[in-house]
Simulated scan of single mutants.
Amino acid sequence: MGRHRVAVGEPWTGDDQDHNDRCHARWRASLNRSTAQADYRDEWYDAQCGGCGFWIALSGELGRDYGVCSNPGSSLDGRVRFEHDGCESFAGRADGSFG
């Protein structure tokens, strides 16, 4: 497995495509809800993580699709989540924004 090299004293930005692709594959495997599931309910479509007030996007390229749940009432609190995933503790943003 290749390693992303970072200059001493510089933070790693996460902008390594190979690394990000591997993360995406691993993290997608832990989806709570997938729109591809036969039992995916219509009302879940508007209650996806990326539209939740407790969703905090990651920085760098991974932040385009992933964030961390910070909802203390959610079983997913503190876990990296795909922006189109969701949970029963969804709290929509007052401004209706997404991502």
Rank of each mutant, 00 (worst) to 15 (best):
D95V: 10
D39C: 01
D95T: 03
Q48A: 12
D16Q: 08
V80W: 05
V8D: 14
W44V: 08
S70E: 11
A91E: 15
R28E: 15
S30P: 06
Q17L: 13
Q37E: 12
G50M: 00
D46K: 12
G92N: 06
N20R: 09
T13S: 04
L31K: 06
D85M: 07
D15K: 05
C49I: 01
G78F: 02
A36E: 07
E83S: 12
T35M: 10
T35A: 08
E83M: 08
S89W: 02
S59V: 07
L58H: 12
D21F: 08
R28L: 15
S89N: 11
E88A: 05
W12Y: 04
C49M: 03
V80M: 12
R41T: 10
Q37A: 15
D42N: 02
A7Y: 09
G73N: 05
G73T: 03
L31F: 06
A91R: 11
V80S: 06
W12I: 04
S70C: 09
G50V: 02
N71I: 00
S59P: 01
W55V: 00
D21A: 09
H19E: 05
W44C: 04
G2H: 15
A36R: 10
V68R: 15
Q17E: 14
G50W: 04
P11G: 08
P11C: 09
Y66H: 07
D18R: 13
Y40L: 05
G53Q: 13
W12Q: 02
D16N: 05
V80C: 14
R28F: 12
S30V: 13
C87S: 03
Q17P: 15
L58W: 09
A94C: 06
E61P: 09
D77G: 01
G60V: 03
C23H: 05
D46S: 13
C49G: 01
H4E: 13
C87F: 01
L76C: 05
V80N: 11
G92R: 15
C49R: 01
R33T: 04
R26A: 12
G78Y: 02
L76M: 13
R33E: 07
R22E: 14
W27I: 13
D85I: 03
G9F: 08
Q37S: 14
N71Y: 01
P11M: 10
G73P: 03
S75C: 07
G78V: 02
A38H: 11
R41C: 07
G2P: 15
A91S: 14
D77S: 09
A57M: 06
W27P: 05
G67R: 00
S59H: 06
A57R: 10
G86D: 02
W55C: 01
